[in-house]
Every structure is written in C-alpha cells, then in structure tokens.
Simulated scan of single mutants.
Amino acid sequence: MSGAAARVSDATDNWVDRHAPLWSRPYLRLSRLDRPIGSWLLLLPCWWSAALAAGIAQDVRRLPLILALFLVGAFAMRGAGCTWNDITDRDLDAQVERTRSRPIPAGQVSVAQAAGFLVLQALIGLAVLLQFNRFAILCGIASLVIVAVYPFMKRITYWPQIVLGLAFSWGALMGFAVSFGRLDATALTLYAGSIAWVIGYDTIYAHQDAEDDALIGIKSTALLFGANTHRALMAFYGLAVLLIGGALLLAGAGWPAWIGLAAFAAHLCWQIARLETGDPALCLRLFKSNRDAGLLLFAGLLGDALLRAAG
C-alpha cells in the first residue's frame, strides 16, 4: 500500500505523511504521533498539577525535570493507549468512515505487530514512572486499569466520556504524588475539574462520528445529548471551571493562577458559542483548540509557582 493510500482520513498532510520512513508510518499512526492533540490533552493535567504543587511548596527547582518527564510519559502512554484502543476496536473501526483507514483495519500492521509495539511504548512509560517516588509509581500503575477498560465502555454505556475523563485526568493527581508522595483535597478537586473538562471536549469530538456510531451501536454523550449538547457543555465546562477554581482556593493560589483560569474559562465559552454539532470539521477544530485552553491555564499556574517561589 502506498504512503498516500495508507493515510488516515482525518490526519492527512502531516509530518508523518511528508517525512517519516514508509515502514514506520503505520506505527506512528497507531501511536497517533501524526495527531498529537491527544497526547497534549493527556499531558496538560500533569503540567497543571506539577505547577500547582510547586506553587504550594514554593519550590520550582525540580519543576523543569518533572515537566520534561511528564512530557515523555504522556506521549508514550497516549501512544500505548491508542494502540490498545485500535486493537480492541479493529472490527468497529472498519465500519466507521473516519476510522476504517487506521493501520489495523486497513491491513498495514497485524494485531501481533501492534501488540508488540504496545509493549514497547508501555516500557518507555514505565521507565519514566520509575524516576519518581514509590507512591507516584503505584499511583501511575493504578491508572492502567481505567485505560484497559475504556475501549469497551462505548459498547455498554452512553457515558464512555466519564471513563475517558478518569483516564485522561489522572495526571492531575500525578503532580501531587510526585511532589509530595501523597494526594489531598486540592489534588482530588483538580482531578474532578479536569474530568468535567474532558467530558465536555470529548463530547464535541464524538459529534464527528455520531451518525456512524448510531448505525453500528456505539454509544456516546454526543448521541445522548443530541440537540441539547450546548446546554450540556455549559454544565460540564462550567463545572470544570468551578472545581479548578476550588483547587486554586485550596492551594492558596495567587493572581497569575486566577488570570489563567479566567482565560481558560473564556476559551471554553468561545467553544460553546462557536460549536455547530452538524459540522464535523468544526467539531474537530474546536476539540483541538482545547490544547490552547489548557496551556492558558498552565501559563497562569506556572506564573503563580514562579512568583511564590521568588517570594
């Protein structure tokens, strides 16, 4: 199969298509390195919690190293999770227009080859995890249970986005686990806020496949909310802002963090106002824009950590 014919339909003209060796392209697509937005969305709660924990400790000396390790770990484990998802969903993916060109249903790699690649990525994630304290290692390993069951949730519930939120928000706990060797109310509140954010943005994402999902029996909050999606997003995004604000209060965060939260909230409001659920291309753009929303919040948390450490 040629490089052009092997492209995934919603990820064309990226660095993988243009520059990666032909033999590597199916594996890079399995790990979604042609579409790194998911890795960013997994990483951002990690960075939020690391910055907020550094602000509480008033010590940023280890923060650059922690942020770098989280970056590597998030990309490795996002890749592993996507590979696992593609292995379990290979028959369903073959029935959906947007996903039938993924490497396994398209015949570019076998299930055994994908499984071997999954192990390799998981070992990279483990190598990162072993750089942390014992509590953080155990906390990171615990997340694998949620990652393992997530692909099956869309078959049994209209709320698979909750399970995705539990998995993708786990980093909101990891910064505290790494920095303090424990979890507290601040970490749990930040985690809850991130879960609400994930439910919101993944509902937008799921609207791309709503028609195909309904035909083949896959469930999602996009199908559940339907015409009420805008109201649902107001509820979940509003809850995300309130809970993250609660975490800032518990952490005694200063004005840079609150400015970051305000910018984050404004971005979420813009998404709701802009959304047209019947426009798949727009849904994808708005979903991807959550990286920018998360970075705005992170910038505020980082500024607060630096200010408190300097004081």
Score class of each variant (00 low, 15 high):
L118Q: 13
Q131C: 14
P26C: 11
A5C: 05
V128F: 08
R308W: 02
I204C: 09
W48S: 09
A127N: 03
N133H: 10
V60I: 13
L138T: 06
P256I: 10
S24Q: 14
V178R: 01
P21H: 06
R100K: 15
R25F: 00
F70A: 14
L224S: 04
L126E: 13
L242E: 01
V60S: 03
L301S: 00
K154Y: 09
W23F: 14
L268R: 02
A257I: 08
A265E: 12
G238A: 10
P45D: 11
G311Q: 12
I244C: 07
A94F: 03
A177Q: 05
V149D: 06
Q161V: 05
W47N: 08
Y205H: 05
H230Q: 07
A263F: 10
T277H: 05
D212C: 03
G73Y: 00
P105S: 10
I37Q: 10
Y191K: 06
I137G: 05
G175D: 05
D212R: 02
M174R: 04
L249E: 05
V96A: 01
R35F: 01
G294Y: 00
F236H: 13
L63M: 11
N133Q: 09
V119E: 08
L302M: 15
Q131E: 13
H230P: 00
R90F: 09
S101L: 12
G55E: 04
R18M: 05
G226P: 02
L188T: 03
G175S: 08
R7N: 03
F180R: 10
W159H: 15
A232I: 04
R78Y: 07
L307V: 13
G294W: 00
W255F: 04
S169N: 13
A281G: 13
W197K: 01
L118T: 08
A257M: 09
T157E: 14
H19D: 06
S31I: 03
G175T: 09
I87F: 06
W258N: 06
Q131M: 11
G38F: 01
L302Q: 04
I146Q: 06
G125A: 07
D34T: 06
V149Q: 10
G125W: 01
A177E: 03
A263M: 13
G303W: 01
A6Q: 15
L166V: 13
Q113L: 05
A235Y: 07
I141L: 15
R25A: 06
C283K: 02
W270Y: 10
D213E: 11
A305M: 08
L284K: 14
A106I: 09
G300P: 01
R62T: 13
A54G: 08
A253G: 11
S143Q: 06
A50Q: 14
L42A: 05
D292R: 11
A167T: 11
P26D: 13
H230Y: 00
R274G: 03
A299P: 00
G55F: 06
H267C: 07
M1A: 14
L188S: 04
L41Q: 13
L123H: 02
R29S: 15
F135R: 08
M234H: 12
D59Q: 08
D213V: 04
I137L: 15
L67G: 09
S220T: 13
S220L: 11
A235L: 15
I162R: 04
W197G: 03
L261G: 09
L239F: 03
L63D: 09
L126F: 14
M1Y: 07
F236I: 11
